[in-house]
Design a protein around this nucleic acid. Sequence first.
DNA 1: CTTGACCCTAGAGTCTACTCTAAGGTTTAA
DNA 2: TTAAACCTTAGAGTAGACTCTAGGGTCAAG
Lengths: 137, 137
Amino acid sequence: MKIGELAKESGLSVHTLRYYEKQDLLLATARSESNYRLYDQQALGTARFIRRSREIGFSLEEVAVFLSIRADKPAHVCAEAKTLAENKIVDVEQKISELKQVLSALHKLSDACCGGNESAEHCSIIDALEQSDQEAS
Amino acid sequence: MKIGELAKESGLSVHTLRYYEKQDLLLATARSESNYRLYDQQALGTARFIRRSREIGFSLEEVAVFLSIRADKPAHVCAEAKTLAENKIVDVEQKISELKQVLSALHKLSDACCGGNESAEHCSIIDALEQSDQEAS
DNA sequence: CTTGACCCTAGAGTCTACTCTAAGGTTTAA
DNA sequence: TTAAACCTTAGAGTAGACTCTAGGGTCAAG
């Protein structure tokens, strides 16, 4: 299959597939006489594997680790994959908690503001951003 | 006050302050004979205003809108500020919900994996990433 | 034989918000 | 007077993951 079909089947763009090749994540199975990239079913599996890993939030660097485990499973142990997943969980939890703080600050801003067509002379949003220090805990 | 002191007082770096000037967010009040940027208390207020807005998660583009409201309050209405805050709330809620889905997918991966020093031959993380379609709802 | 849909490469551009560098000039304190 | 600690500019670099462009070749249908 050529790159266009692989793109369709995998849900990745042609550009992205070529980019992944440059990053050594997904090499073409072969080249046609006219130098077109050719892929087999295994390559399609890998493309989908990468897409799923990305959707779950892994970076390309992390995906590369998964791919190397996947490529030679007997040479690796479960702990390697699990560590990656656990670290990612910590990252994501951290991000969520940061965003929740941001959200609470935003709600405070928004709730205090009348939001009407009154002049912003005494807009509580602007005023709140003016305050010297406000900790939201 | 010179840029170094403004940096210290505002909690922004000298580089960042100059960057904000380039972005027309915070102009120097004046220049000394030797062409040093000079700032007054009002500029310090603006610097802090920007920092607080950024901490709450507004982009520089959004901060620019706040600054223009702040600069001429009578010419603006509360609705403008509130709209910005509400849109940001929607964005942040969206991001949080995406991250929660990611987190749940990660937990599924991680929980299924023994994580031990066994060969990754049957690692359930790698296997799960291999699956063709798994919707987490 | 031409049109359109493919494919190729190298390399540049995008996004946001900085962050840093090079190569200088100024001020201050000892 | 000299060294440290400031300040200036224009412009490049950083992160991550694409995304696109220019300028060209290839292939199948009508």
